[in-house]
Design a binder for these strands. Structure first.
Lengths: 223, 223
DNA sequence: TGTAAACTAATACTTATGTGCTATGGGAAT
DNA sequence: ATTCCCATAGCACATAAGTATTAGTTTACA
């Protein structure tokens, strides 16, 4: 049996490698350190199983998952994730994955999942399935998870600039000075930001910007 | 040989467990899923080695590292981290760790590190050592990121609780409800927090709390 | 026992934030 | 061309946030 293990951390790959080898004596494990490497390997020889870590923060991970599932629709793909966010689970399954296992799960759950999907099934740990139904409601009124694309796609360029300054803790007056605007215009933008993102005050917006690394991102682009 | 493995992800623990068992046939691996659990185990029986994942976002991880190193100064502590940030490395070593290994390192590096610190040495991968020297300069003028101790030492318990709710984006009114206080009292606390930390509004406070991982820290302690 | 520090809270203010509505000008798309 | 969206901005208004002062209570500590 040929299995593909994708993770950017070599130690994690090695750990999974050993783990799989102990459980499945006839397994042939191939490791890939990046999405590109994995997609390259897919093209050459067929695998019986892929275990991928949702290692990239933000939306990029899901782009890779989609590419992988599209590249070989027959390949059972098992997603390992540090997150147990039901939204992530749903998204992965929608993209064509066969199983979703949180890293906090027991080894046995991983092995069960592998057995399941090798038989052509789909596997999601029962606890997450349960959490799914009730979390789907609260997910609508909670701020939603931080994903840069999800946020930037909802905001105009100007709004994003202003969100960045909110994240740096500036007041409307300071922002107005920085951008040579009237304080009133800033307020309009802030209002629009809050409405678009479903937030209730600038502190929530600032924290979201912080989670997204807006400041780091702009500092980066200034180098 | 007794080894303690600390990580909140069971699969990671299992992977390390298998890896260590393969390399060190006589090893006795004990797993801990949280900092509290680990500190409890330290008190009972002595270990020859601790391998801990810097799993908590923000500064909270370093608080645990310090506690662990203080609890048993003789214990060689190896820090595993997804980050290769030289500032983190330096901080861990300063806190009393014996080795710092990024998760992206090869298995052999981890084993080398273990061998080294069991012999009483200190181990840091050579690439990181090199990065260290040149990064040390930029570290002084760029990030200046806050440490949890620096903040908590300036605040009372109540103030820290309220800062946590600010970080969750709540209004004074909501905080008052949550704590059964008058909104006025909350304002007094908020004012005190801002003054103590040298901030100018609650958004700055919320972002600071976010950087410190206050929410994650309390969510952790609520488990 | 006295005293300092925290927590609580009221009153009275000032300033900041956020919303609704209206309006103008510039692009870009159809 | 006309429509739609964005950015700008004024005005009015409501509410939130933050400050200052005073004061009662508890707790801890010398």
């Amino acid at each position: 049996m040929r299995a593909l293990v994708v993770d950017d951390h070599m130690l994690i790959r090695s750990g999974l490698h050993d783990m799989l080898a102990n459980r499945f004596p006839d397994i042939d494990v191939v490791e890939a350190a990046s999405g590109e490497a994995a997609l390259g390997l897919i093209d050459s020889k067929p695998f019986d199983l892929a275990i991928i870590d949702l290692f990239i923060p933000g939306e990029a991970a899901f782009v890779f998952v989609r590419k992988l599932c599209d590249a070989d629709p027959e390949l059972p793909v098992l997603v390992l994730s540090g997150s147990e966010n039901p939204v992530h689970v749903r998204k992965c399954i929608d993209l064509g994955c066969s199983a979703f296992v949180p890293k906090s799960a027991a080894q046995e759950i991983l092995f069960n999942a592998i057995d399941s999907i090798l038989d052509g099934g789909v596997f999601i740990p029962i606890e997450i399935m349960h959490a799914n139904t009730e979390a789907e409601l609260s997910a609508t009124e909670l701020p939603a998870l931080p994903s840069i694309e999800a946020v930037t796609s909802k905001l105009t360029d100007r709004q994003l600039e202003i969100l960045t300054l909110i994240t740096s803790g500036k007041s409307n007056k300071q922002i107005a000075r920085d951008f040579q605007l009237s304080e009133n215009t800033v307020k309009v933008h802030v209002s629009a930001i809050l409405r678009s993102l479903g937030l209730h005050n600038r502190t929530q917006a600032g924290i979201l910007g912080q989670q997204l690394g807006l400041l780091a991102a702009t500092a980066e682009s200034m180098r």
